[in-house]
Design a protein around this nucleic acid. Structure first.
Lengths: 203, 203, 203, 203
DNA sequence: AATGAATGAGCATTCATTCAT
DNA sequence: AATGAATGAATGCTCATTCAT
């Protein structure tokens, strides 16, 4: 038997509600990976069939795990949001509040250049309605970063989190349409960062 | 200006390749207007049938004028680009180079909030490949605005046009995903403008 | 002749709302015929694809004429109901009220044996909710037949139309499941008719 | 009765071909019960998965016991037929032949209104081909009821069992499509019974 | 040149049946 | 023997594109 479920150990914190058979878990993972890749490359209009093919499973299997295409998309978003929020919290927990926000901003824009999913996720973070928990967590993590940066004097005190999110969303969206030569991306970010810093900020 | 259509001169150089019968020309115009409205409201996924209906022509007529949906979209982009470029040139020709760029930037973001087409157009302006003339014209007009603003001391001298375009594209894209409360839009633009101004910029 | 539509003569009582091109009208007819045959043979679960094939048209054409499978089914029901109601009215207008109801009953059961559609239609006539006009017309026509038959003394005066409908529906449904040898059908109808006649009715 | 399973005799002649392990037998029973309930409520188009769930077994177990959905349906029919036949025989064995047939008829129609399975079963009883033994038993039991009723003078002597079956089937089918207000059902049955009674039938 | 009917590939989703665990 | 995950053919429906009228 593959799953020795002797005790209902409460540490089963990750994954779906019920324990899955080993093969089902493997397929679920493959589907998520395939979906992340396909959605990242082609956006949410990519066909479920293509995802199934890339995952090497039948179309029925995809729908067994995710009863609608919508739910699959949400799961991907969820995962990406969790990852981003974690990265953000890690940055917030690190030493330098003055640079954490800028680092996060830069990293996220870089990721967006490669993953449409990140772009789409942030797009959802822009609409303050019907947002799932992980998206909210991301928003809150950004708010923390902004607050810390302000306390450290790295960001003007009259800046608020929503416009930071707006700028972040915008540059990530732009990634869908701009061939970011590294220097161009750097110069664009420099403008935004300069705009965020106090007017008297040293070079 | 090439298109004063007083006489049915067969060599009309603007517009489609060959001269069109008067009714054909009228249909072409109606289709473009309908497509601009529909794409502006629903984005590029709107159905061609809907456009034909709004234009009051048969679907076949749409495809006679534009052999693919793609080509219709491009034509719309073309038209919007022409209009934007003209507005931009008008601004450049006006009196105050110090504010012209910011005015243009603000106006365009506002338009984007209402017209998906503007967003899509700018998206294309971000890809330096396969750009049609009107899009290039827009890029150049923006370059002029940036140059003038720099000469007027309103924009840092190390800023270049591409990052201004990138920021513009990004904020327009963001319009698709953010509910721009007017103050939020203003504060977001303020950050960008602060980033563009010289560090020691006067008020 | 397809359509000599010189004047908007108001007698265009049959067919869809707008005049159709000759080919479209032809296809519409073929689809209806195919659908009637297929539904009659296999019931409402028959696939739309099969109907399209039998009609010799693409699947898209079926959906252009009938935007949902449901609507196609309704159209068939409508047509059958109209036909049945007309037959019924014709019988009612004829000379002998004493036999008209029995004739109608017999004929309908015979038709049901060949056409599932008739069975399904009558099934709908049994549910007094959300019935379309032609179905109501059929119910009313049957009520007339019953009333006339009672006035002629051919049917007991305490019988009401609903149970006549119920018996009709039942025997039509039975046709789906019984191999009606002609004598069996006749004997079964004889029982029902005997039950409808006054107790003192002459043999 | 052959199936007293005191000992695991390997040659048990009734039920499935071979003797089953105790738990398999239990599962078989649960599946049949679940299927009867689900089919009774939703008709034969109910999904096999739902039946498995209601039975508390895996879908695979259902297919192990019944290799096709069709075979499961037949088994249900079998069971219902056995029950109905027994009820019928019990009525025949009772005291009053004059009313037994009518009682049976009334009861069955009432059951049909609640159990689609009864309707479907009788539908099969109408086709004299490929009838399983229990269905035949039911037909024979009805024949007995009819014969007794005729001997008692409650039913005309020229009536034969097949038309009684046809009427029974029809009214049960009608139950699927008619909202049987109790009075309507009573009046409908009254017509049929009047048709079955001798013309000069006393009271 | 205009029309709009016809086409058919493509999509999301369901479900009877099979098979690895 | 039991499980339930996997399968994939089939269905209703959409829409860009073609073509007869």
């Amino acid at each position: 038997m593959p799953n020795d479920q002797r005790v209902p150990e409460p540490d089963a914190s990750a994954g779906p509600v019920r324990a899955l058979r080993a093969d089902a878990q493997r397929n679920r993972t493959r589907i998520l990976e395939a979906a992340e890749a396909v959605f990242a490359a082609k956006g949410p209009s990519a066909s479920t069939e293509e995802i199934a093919q890339k995952a090497g499973v039948g179309i029925g299997t995809v729908f067994r795990h995710f009863p609608t295409k919508e739910s699959l998309l949400k799961a991907i978003m969820h995962a990406v949001a969790v990852r981003l929020a974690e990265e953000t919290r890690a940055l917030a927990a690190q030493g330098d509040p003055a640079t954490a926000l800028f680092t996060f901003f830069t990293r996220t824009v870089e990721q967006a250049a490669e993953q449409k999913t990140v772009v789409d996720l942030l797009a959802q973070a822009g609409i303050p309605v019907t947002v799932a928990k992980p998206v909210l967590a991301l928003r809150e993590a950004v708010e923390v970063l902004v607050g810390r940066a302000q306390q450290a004097g790295a960001v003007r005190s009259d800046v608020r989190a929503p416009e930071v999110m707006a700028l972040l969303i915008g540059l990530c969206q732009a990634s869908l349409h701009i061939r970011w030569e590294p220097e161009l991306r750097a110069r664009t970010l420099a403008v935004v960062f300069a705009g965020l810093r106090p007017a008297t900020a040293p070079g």
